[in-house]
Amino acid sequence: MNGVAHAWLIVALMMSGLYIVMASAHLFKKLIGLSVFQVSVFMLYISLGVVEGAAPPIVEPGVDAYSNPLPHVLILTAIVVGIATMALALALLVRIRRAYGTLDEAALAAKDEDA
């Protein structure tokens, strides 16, 4: 268990996120699930950079083992992409709510059948 505990945590988050995306009928809850799912991947990347017994990747005299900074830089980009996705999704939800007056999937489908 030791040494892979973080992996279990990440997978648990990942699966909970995906489950919320699939199981919720409310669009906003789906978005929350999606966010949890994405965060789990951020954590996966960050954990990849760990080098045991190493210092943070800031050059200092007397330190010769550093953690790998590359996954951190990568995931910074992915976090930005995630924020953009979230902003766009929220904007869509605002417009859906304005056009339909609800964010519930079943209610949305019902309203379009009336029209």
């Binding site: 669009l27 859906i96 949305l108």
Partner: peptide, 9 residues
């Protein structure tokens, strides 16, 4: 709008 949201998810 819902189509785009579903596509986004």
């Amino acid at each position: 709008l819902p189509a785009s949201f579903r596509y986004l998810i």
